[in-house]
Design a protein around this nucleic acid. Structure first.
Lengths: 227, 227
DNA sequence: AAACAAGAGATATTCGAAAATCTCTGAATA
DNA sequence: TATTCAGAGATTTTCGAATATCTCTTGTTT
């Protein structure tokens, strides 16, 4: 089995994207081509293509003739994003609960299990949310919506999730008292019980809770910056 | 007042995008760089950047190392698209009706007036839907959603609208008996009356009606191709 | 005849230099 | 002192040639 070598552009694109999403660059930070070329070992065309793709996704902002920068964050934007995300994912979850078959259910259960068995925090000091858990978490929410069987809806949900990821990774907050596992269990149970109202309520609360924590962190950061 | 000369990339991008959306290239048609370079008078990097941006939007499909092609269409895809579009726009319209201020109302009325006063069909034989009307039509639906004041939601709606535009322009069907103006008036009236349920119902019917016509045209085209 | 291999041509991709544009500094002017 | 201007340096943008890859034809082998 030969592993077809990926096109360089694809690889560089994936790495830059992961780095932007992973908080390697600060919101609003300029992304100059020359340094990026060195960092990722690619030529200016490849970097440029990557950045314009990310711009199209809203992860990067571009001003023609001036340059690219990581997208800005703000409390207002976070609120809009959260609202849109809750609305769209609720929609998709309802479809999934209505239409999802046994195979979908199994995938959801599997994804949930994977997430539960992945350690959430790293051994660092202070502890960070581990990349593995983030992936598993994303996988669980993705699996839930998969049942809606509408590629357009899924695509939209993914875009919004990525934008949310950006906020989350950047702030790297975590609330000690929060029972995230419990929130997920509630979503899972309601979904398997095919109780759409209850599942959607749980999902919305889950996202709203996260957003509230992020918003507080964001506000604190702004205060710190202005002083 | 100096008109800042747009970056060439931006101009080429806009032209290619308009052409893809406008049905100049058939769904599934390959978009080879060399011919495109000549057509638009740009170098391969500029064309490539344009195509990868359009790929990110879902208007163009790309297979690494093989090339770009105009996105495929299918009855299934149209159904998914329509469903997502109705759901998302309904959401946005509800917010708009709930939150929109007097200024928004005025914009909606203005956009509607503009559309009503623009001739829908060209003088060609057979008559086509005029570009001016398409623009005005798009403007009306855009103005409606503007009141939701959520950039994320608006962005999503725009993406879906563009994809729909692609289907519409490509098939260029029009139903002689259909009272499009009446459908729009109903949406407008219900919106101004702040009757969300009625407005959303009218909007959904409007899109579903269009989709049904397109679906029929699409099915006929497939039959014609397979024979 | 079918399957495979080699090679020519077509095409996508990558590169780095050339050109265009922007930004910032410091001197000249009002 | 504030404003304007010129120019050096930094940066983005564009270009077309060089390279890598794919595709299709033709010929060879089984």
């Amino acid at each position: 089995m030969t592993t077809r070598p990926r096109a360089s552009t694809e690889e560089v694109y994936a790495r830059v994207r992961a780095d932007v999403l992973g908080g390697v660059y600060a919101p609003g930070e300029r992304l100059k081509s020359t340094p990026l070329c060195e960092t990722y070992g690619a030529s200016v065309s490849v970097i440029r293509e990557t950045l314009s793709r990310l711009t199209e996704q809203g992860l990067v902002e571009s001003e023609p003739r001036i340059g690219f920068r990581v997208r800005q964050v703000s409390v207002d934007d976070l609120r809009h994003l959260t609202s849109a995300r809750i609305d769209v994912e609720s929609l998709a979850l309802r479809y999934a609960i209505e239409r999802g078959d046994m195979n979908w259910e199994s995938e959801v259960v599997a994804a949930h299990h994977r997430m539960e068995r992945t350690p959430m925090l790293t051994a660092d000091a202070p502890p960070r949310v581990s990349d593995e858990w983030e992936t598993a978490h994303s996988g669980f929410h993705g699996a839930l919506l998969e049942g809606a069987q509408n590629p357009w809806l899924l695509g939209i949900a993914t875009t919004l999730r990525d934008a949310g990821e950006f906020y989350r990774r950047w702030s790297q907050v975590h609330e000690p008292g929060r029972d995230v596992a419990g929130e997920h269990r509630e979503i899972l149970e309601a979904t398997l019980a095919r109780d759409a109202d209850r599942a959607v309520r749980a999902l919305a609360q889950h996202y709203q809770h996260t957003a509230d924590i992020l918003e507080r962190a964001l506000a604190e950061r702004d205060v710190a910056q202005n002083s």
